[in-house]
């Protein structure tokens, strides 16, 4: 399997694009569900959805696929990074890169690493605490319509009461913004979609997506910290 994935420069590119698009689709779901905190209903809607995501068999299976996809994206990215450095061993004494490309398109590996570091912290805050150990909060159950729900919302409130954490999360979202700004369009180009008819549409959707999704994500820790939502 590994040989089929990493067979050539182009197969590596296809897998980068496919896993990228898959991760993008995950972002949509994750963002939509988390955005229910903005209902400001004390976390009722959010906790119900979080419970669904944590118990539904299809979702749990997709969680494994998601990890696999992320891992593949990271490994493929690292392989590309090191191979590409080898392909350009000697640096120019004077290189005017900004004349022909954007800094973020040249810095996908760096941005990806920042996002990965953020993800490790993020997973520790939430995924690890709900799936492996237990929530840090004392009010870890919420009663909704007579049923017990794990109070992930309270965990969010707790985590985002720390200013440093909030700043790190916002920085993570900013890295994601730059990564997506190149990655979204890039994925479609890699898969060969770039007909004049929809090239501009993809670029537009890509730019809009890169701004909107990270902005909504960044608004979450900020809203908790600034007590816009209780």
């Amino acid at each position: 399997m590994a040989s089929a994935i990493f067979k050539s420069s182009l197969t590596k590119k296809f897998w980068m694009a496919l896993t990228g698009i898959f991760l993008i689709s995950f972002l949509v779901v994750h963002c939509a569900i988390n955005a229910t905190i903005f209902f400001n209903d004390g976390g009722k809607t959010f906790n119900v959805w979080a419970h669904f995501m944590g118990t539904n068999i299809i979702i749990r299976t997709m969680e494994i696929v998601l990890f696999a996809g992320l891992l593949l994206h990271v490994i493929d990215g690292l392989i590309l990074y090191f191979q590409n450095r080898k392909a350009r061993p000697v640096k120019y004494a004077y290189e005017k890169s900004s004349a022909s490309s954007t800094w973020y398109s040249r810095s996908m590996a760096l941005l990806g690493t920042l996002i990965l570091l953020f993800l490790i912290l993020h997973m520790y805050h939430f995924w690890f605490k709900t799936r492996i150990t237990h929530l840090d909060v004392t009010n870890h159950v919420m009663m909704i319509d007579g049923l017990e729900y794990e109070n992930l919302y309270a965990q969010m409130q707790l985590v985002f009461s720390n200013l440093i954490v909030v700043i790190v999360y916002v920085l993570g979202c900013i890295s994601l913004f730059w990564h997506l700004l190149h990655g979204f369009k890039s994925a479609f180009q890699s898969l060969g979609f770039n007909h004049l008819k929809y090239k501009n549409a993809i670029a537009f959707v890509g730019d809009a997506f890169s701004v909107i999704i990270p902005a909504i994500f960044a608004a979450m820790p900020l809203a908790f910290y600034l007590k816009f939502i209780q």
Binding site: S8, K12, N84, S100, S186
Partner: peptide, 22 residues
């Protein structure tokens, strides 16, 4: 051609787009 390109030690495209400009 892609196979040969890889064998010759050229890097992998990441759609930076500088080539088109230059």
């Amino acid at each position: 051609m892609v196979k040969k390109m890889d064998e010759e030690g050229f890097g992998n495209c990441s759609n930076i787009g500088a080539c088109e400009v230059q």
